[in-house]
Simulated scan of single mutants.
Amino acid sequence: MAITQTVSSGKKRRIRGDGAWGYAFIAVALLGYALFTAYPVISAFFISFQEYKPLGSEYVGFDNYSATFRDPLFWKSIRNTIVYTILTVPVALALSFAIAILILPLKKRLQTTFKAIYYLPVVASGVAMSVVWLWIFDPLPAGIFNRLISIVGAPNQNWLGASGTAMFSLVIMAWLSSHGASIIIYLAALLGVDESYYEAADLDGATFLQKLWHIVIPFLKPTTLFLLVTGVIGSFQVFQNAYLMTGGGPDNATTMVGLLIFNNAFKYFEYGKAAAQSLVLALLIAGISMFQFKFLGKDVEY
């Protein structure tokens, strides 16, 4: 009996010791989360009810929220962000899926080469990418897009400087870049489909499109839902493209919510209003994500 108690107490001490090491290993991640995520969110909540000043703030209640909802520019930025999301996310998913399907039959070395090529824009500097796209959209005849349309006799366009083409230019930029992560995720999901399904489909004489519709797409529905939700979240938070390419112009035609919040905080120093707008944006993203999971993820199993 004494030996059993000794062994049991030794196991408990060992388990407690392992647990302590586990908490020690995650302490850095928890500390980083507390400092750079939880604390800023909580601070933003309190700042949204204040006229924030570095040397003393004044409580103003819901004035920042009412000013936000009365601001025509805020609603225009919401509309711009929704238009940008609708035009970019579905097309980006379709392109990533199509490219993954084309890469899948290749040999492993070729697969690795193409994955590296498509993933390169993800790791490249956003500023460097914007410089390249500014050259592509150059309003002078030297710009690549103007050279292309000159082939059919169309006049030069001021792609980023005209209200009618500025948003479309940002959409084209999103269509033709940054698909690397989605392609790799789709490829991983495609490699997880059991070969026996394809073999059974071949025995039944199924065509490529039939196998794509009845096997691949249903199996990849969880992956597609994940990429759709994360894509919408990322699109609603878009800032870099609009800031570096157009600055929100012309006439606020490309002012997104993220850029508006940035300008209010760091250009006009209206920190309370910016905090209120950021929390409204967070609630909007949360609501859209819940809607996607509720209506698009009914029969999705993980």
Rank of each mutant, 00 (worst) to 15 (best):
D204F: 07
E195W: 03
A201Y: 03
N252H: 15
G234L: 03
N252R: 15
L244D: 11
I215E: 09
D194W: 14
D202G: 10
Y197V: 10
L259P: 04
N264R: 00
L227D: 05
A274S: 10
H214V: 04
A274R: 08
P250R: 07
V257C: 04
P218D: 14
F239T: 06
Q237E: 03
V216R: 05
S235R: 06
F208G: 15
A265H: 00
I261C: 07
L227N: 14
N252I: 13
G248H: 06
E195M: 04
Y198Q: 09
I215Y: 02
G248W: 01
N263P: 03
A274F: 01
A206Y: 00
E195L: 08
L209H: 14
Y243P: 08
T254D: 06
I233D: 00
A242Q: 09
I215W: 02
I233L: 01
L209E: 12
A275N: 02
F236V: 09
L209Y: 15
T224I: 06
L227T: 06
A242W: 02
T223R: 02
I217H: 13
Y197S: 13
M256S: 11
L260A: 06
G205L: 01
W213F: 12
F239M: 03
Y243S: 11
M256G: 06
D204L: 12
S235N: 01
F208Q: 15
S196R: 15
F269T: 11
T246D: 04
F266D: 09
F208S: 14
N252V: 14
G272E: 00
F239N: 02
T224K: 03
L209W: 15
N264I: 00
F266Q: 07
Y243T: 12
A265L: 00
H214Q: 03
V229I: 15
L228Q: 01
V257G: 02
A276F: 05
E270K: 14
L228F: 03
Y268G: 06
L209F: 15
Y198C: 11
D251K: 05
L220Q: 12
L209T: 15
V238I: 08
N263I: 06
A275L: 00
L228M: 13
V257P: 02
L225W: 07
A276Q: 05
D202F: 08
T230E: 00
E195Q: 12
Q210A: 10
H214Y: 08
V238N: 11
N263Q: 11
D202R: 14
F236E: 03
K211M: 02
